[in-house]
Structure formats: structure tokens, C-alpha cells
């Protein structure tokens, strides 16, 4: 999810908390929310303001509904022309592939990958967390070689470069986070 959508989601969730909180308190006997709503409804400006807010929340609801069906992969792809037509492999698919391949290398705990295409080839940027019991230079060298070979063989595109950042040294995988060294 993009940062803008995260902000919208936070606003949306906050609005729902206020709305249902007030509804709950009204239902259990607190009269103040009901009085506030009644006073707002009496003035045309108040009704307009409530309508605008309700419409904005309706738009946000539709936006999040559509987001639940949206594909994770973007629109960028690396393409090559064959005799029977074009073959396009979306960068999101390559990204998932790289993450999977990296996770299979012993010593790698968590992986984030970003792929960018330069013409018919791709550049791979990997950020990872590793175990404390591995040699980081050896591991990163192995990872670079593995990623380059795998992407070349499986996707059929040249890999310009594989940049690596070791972000953390941890004993735990993502599912049981907490003990970073």
C-alpha cells in the first residue's frame, strides 16, 4: 500500500472510531452525542458539513474496496520480442521471485527486494536481515551470484547489477520478531 493510502486509511479508521464510539455511548445512555447531532441538524451549514464528511467517507470506502482487489504487481514490465509475439514479465513477479530465492539461502532471515528495468535488462536491489552466525561478505556474494543466475535462467533477462544492503543481524525470522542482535 502506498504512503498516501496509508494516511487515508488512518483518517478513515480514526473517523470510524469516533463515529462508532459516539454511537455506542449514545446507545448506553449518554445524551451528549445525540444533542450535538440534533443541534447540527437544525442548521443548514451543519447539514452541509455532515453531508460533505459523509460523502468523503463514502469515497474512501469505495477506494479501499477497490484496493482489496488490486493486484500487487505494478504496471512496469521487462519485455522481449519473440517470433510469435511479445513476452512481458512484470517487475512485481520478478520481485517475488527474488525474495523467494533469497529466503532459500541459509543465513538469510528477512528480505525486501526492488527491481528496476533498464531497457531489456533489470537491476536488483535487495535489503535483508541475516543470521549472526554467517560471514556477511560470503553470504552477500553468494546471494548476488544466486539472484543473477536465477533471474537470468528463469526470467530470461540480463541482470545488470545486484545491490545488497544488510539491514540487520537477527536470530529470529519475521514471524517471531523481537531479538535483534
Amino acid at each position: 500500500m502506498e504512503i498516501g493510502d496509508r494516511v487515508l486509511l488512518a483518517v478513515f479508521a480514526g473517523g470510524l472510531v469516533v463515529h462508532f464510539g459516539m454511537t455506542f455511548l449514545s446507545m448506553v445512555g449518554w445524551a451528549v452525542p445525540g444533542k450535538i447531532i440534533a443541534s447540527i441538524e437544525k442548521s443548514p451549514e451543519g447539514r452541509t458539513a455532515i453531508s460533505v464528511v459523509a460523502f468523503a467517507f463514502l469515497l474512501l470506502s469505495v477506494r479501499f474496496f477497490i484496493l482489496t482487489f488490486r493486484r500487487k504487481y505494478g504496471s512496469k514490465a521487462v519485455a522481449h520480442q519473440g517470433p510469435l509475439g511479445e513476452v512481458r514479465v512484470y517487475l512485481g513477479a520478478i520481485e517475488n521471485l527474488v525474495k523467494r530465492v533469497c529466503r532459500q539461502v541459509p543465513g538469510v532471515r528477512e528480505v525486501k527486494a526492488h527491481i528496476s528495468n533498464v531497457g531489456d535488462s533489470v537491476s536488483v536491489f535487495v535489503r535483508c536481515s541475516v543470521s549472526p552466525d554467517v560471514s556477511i561478505p560470503d553470504l552477500t556474494r553468494d546471494l548476488q551470484k544466486t539472484v543473477q543466475t536465477y533471474v537470468k535462467n528463469v526470467v530470461g533477462v540480463e541482470v545488470n547489477e545486484v545491490k545488497m544492503v544488510v539491514e540487520n543481524i537477527t536470530t529470529e525470522s519475521k514471524k517471531s520478531r523481537g531479538s535483534a542482535v
Binding site: Y73, E86, R88, Y90, G92, A93
Partner: peptide, 20 residues
Amino acid sequence: VEVNIHVQGITFSQEGKGGD
């Protein structure tokens, strides 16, 4: 005249069809 292929995802399980 042409069959263009768009590979949009890779699935890692037998039953899954939506990528990782």
C-alpha cells in the same frame, strides 16, 4: 498474427494463483 504474453505473477503453491 501475434500472441503476446504478460506474466503478471508467480505462484509458489500448487493451489495459489496470485503470486507471493
